[in-house]
Amino acid sequence: MVRFDQLKSSFWRDGPGEALTDDALARAERELSVRLPAELAELLRLRDGGTVADGCDAFPTREPTSWSETHVPFDLLHGVGSGAGISLLDSAYLVGEWGLPASIVLLSGDGHTWIGLDYRRSATPAVTWFDADRETELPLAPTFRDFAEGLVPAANFPWA
């Protein structure tokens, strides 16, 4: 397992980019009505969303999902800025559109499957996998830090 402090410098595929400002982070937290995990904020201060490096583009699972028997993909992390395509700020709309539980901030996904910060039980969110088509969910990690430190290369997994 890679420690978060070591992961930060190699998290983004294209390295640092346009960073999230403290003002934009504060506005996002007000709009989302949550406090984002400090580690997520650290990553977004390096680059406000984008493609993650190959070394951390999957999370191993203990149960099979519709994606794989062994893992879920995490090739993209949504940012806050308008140039990032889908944004963390689109979570409320997407949660409603895809019939996901309330109190979720979506980190990554394609509509059918999502990885999100799950605030339903605590102000410190767990990270959960949601399959909108199958109406299932799978807890991945108790905190965003645990999630980030558990990321591994998707290339480690067979595609059988």
Rank of each mutant, 00 (worst) to 15 (best):
A28H: 04
S87V: 10
W159H: 15
W114P: 09
W129T: 04
D131G: 01
L151R: 06
L44Y: 02
D133S: 05
D22E: 06
F144T: 07
T70M: 10
S108T: 14
P16L: 09
S10T: 14
S68D: 10
E135W: 08
I104F: 07
E18D: 15
S87H: 13
D22S: 11
R121L: 15
V52M: 02
P64L: 04
E149R: 01
E39H: 03
F4L: 05
H71K: 02
S82Y: 10
G150K: 00
P60F: 09
I86E: 15
A102T: 14
W67A: 12
E97W: 12
S122F: 01
G15P: 06
A84D: 14
E18Q: 15
P64H: 03
L138A: 12
P64D: 10
A160H: 08
P125H: 00
T65Q: 06
W129E: 07
L43P: 11
V72I: 15
H78Q: 14
D14G: 09
D57W: 00
F11V: 01
A155D: 15
G17N: 08
D23G: 11
L77F: 09
P125C: 08
S10I: 12
T136D: 12
S103W: 06
R13S: 14
T136G: 12
P73C: 02
F147L: 06
R145S: 13
E39M: 10
L140V: 07
Q6S: 07
I104N: 08
D146V: 02
D22Y: 00
A53D: 13
G55V: 06
L88V: 12
L88E: 06
V152M: 00
F157D: 00
D54G: 15
G50N: 06
R45F: 04
T61S: 09
T61F: 04
V95C: 11
V105M: 05
R3F: 07
L7H: 01
T61C: 15
L25T: 00
L89T: 08
V80M: 01
E42S: 08
C56S: 03
G79M: 07
S91V: 12
E97G: 05
T128A: 14
G79R: 02
D131R: 03
A155S: 13
H112L: 07
W159N: 15
A92Q: 08
A154N: 12
A24L: 10
D133Q: 10
E97C: 11
D118Q: 04
L100T: 03
A155L: 11
G79C: 07
T51Y: 13
L140G: 12
N156W: 11
S33T: 11
G81M: 05
D133W: 02
T124E: 13
L151P: 03
P158M: 00
T143V: 03
T136N: 12
V80Y: 04
F11W: 05
L89D: 13
P73H: 01
